[in-house]
């Protein structure tokens, strides 16, 4: 096991280097010179050259890459071209909001999707199953921004207490309003974005649970358990469900990057100050340092998440041998 873990970790190194090279190259192939962001439109070539030198942009691309990588390894993603603040500061001040939203969404998704998936598998091709399939497909097929805007107009504006944008009422916090009032206030702001984000994502998990369950109840050991005359409830809960949940556990590994990834469109509509908005603004403003950092961190988490998922899989499923 230890061998396997070490080997997987070592394999990550070339992967991450590859990611960093592609990441860096994409941003530097982009038309639109970042120097133009830092100067006036009618700046002279001399002025441009000076600014370029100031930011180290006059060096050959591979030199720039090595320097950038050196800093990244030390956890320094440089400074934003636009406002001069460290990229890490930008990310850290947004991260809590994205984590907060995604964490709540994740809990709700799993709480709903697992039982729904199980029931629709047990009653395959029943009305319930068809309804679930329909709703999961609906969640996937509905353009999320359309749904979000419809919610804002249909629910948000009409009701007086449901906020349509932001994360909290200014001035409401534990100190001034007490714990419960604060929790209630935060919860109100969560309702609309959480609804939109979970509807879209629930589909995948519910479908996955359904097929995992379907696969398990066809297995011999479930048949055996039934044949032994065990009550159906015991068969389902003790034998089938436990095994069907195993692959779901491994999904937790994939949740790592998902927790971190902001949802640009939802954050735009609900003015949610998370990483999605940050990335999107950076992309539009060509704030390369931030875009590269976001892509790099996102990709690294994805790699780690995959690794974690594999390890979890090995741990929960004794049938799988690691070599």
């Amino acid at each position: 096991m230890l061998n396997y873990v070490v080997r997987r970790l070592l394999q990550m190194i070339p992967l991450l280097i590859g990611i960093s090279i592609i990441n860096f190259t994409i941003m530097h192939l982009a038309p639109g010179d970042p120097v133009l962001l830092l100067s006036e439109r009618n700046a002279t070539p001399e002025e441009l050259a000076r600014i370029r030198a100031l930011y180290g942009l006059d060096e050959p691309i591979h030199v720039q890459y090595v320097k950038w990588l050196g800093h990244v390894l030390k956890g320094d993603f440089g400074r934003s071209f636009v406002d001069g603040r460290p990229v890490m500061d930008h990310i850290l001040e947004r991260l809590p909001y994205t984590l907060y939203l995604n964490f709540i969404v994740m809990i709700i998704i799993y709480l709903v999707a697992i039982p729904v998936g199980v029931i629709s598998a047990l009653r395959q091709y029943s009305k319930f199953d068809h309804a679930v399939t329909f709703f999961t497909f609906l969640g996937q097929a509905l353009p999320s921004f359309w749904f979000a805007l419809l919610l804002i107009y249909a629910v948000g504006i009409k009701s007086n207490w449901l906020p349509i944008a932001g994360v909290a009422t200014i001035g409401v916090n534990v100190k001034t309003s007490g714990l419960w009032a604060t929790i209630l206030d935060r919860a109100k702001y969560l309702i609309l974005p959480v609804t939109v984000v979970s509807l879209g994502s629930m589909a995948g998990i519910a479908r996955y649970m359904r097929s995992s369950m379907l696969e398990v109840i066809r297995q011999d050991y479930v048949r055996t358990a039934r044949a032994k005359g065990l009550p159906e409830k015991a068969v389902i809960i003790k034998h089938a469900l436990r095994n069907a949940l195993l692959p779901i556990v491994t999904l937790l590994g994939f949740e790592l990057p998902a927790l971190f990834s902001g949802t640009a469109i939802i954050e735009t509509i609900f003015s949610w100050p998370g990483l999605g908005l940050l990335s999107m603004r950076a992309i539009f403003q060509r704030d390369y340092q931030i875009v590269m950092a976001m892509n790099m961190i996102g990709a690294t988490l994805m790699v780690l998440g995959n690794f974690l998922a594999d390890i979890l899989y090995v741990i929960v499923d004794p049938r799988i041998k690691y070599s």
Binding site: I157, P163, I164, A165
Partner: peptide, 19 residues
């Protein structure tokens, strides 16, 4: 207090709500 919105329509809705 200056509140920031990302969408003009949402901001208009906030104006109507009295935010």
């Amino acid at each position: 207090i200056v509140k920031f919105y990302q969408d003009e329509q949402v901001m208009l809705a906030a104006l109507e709500k009295g935010d």
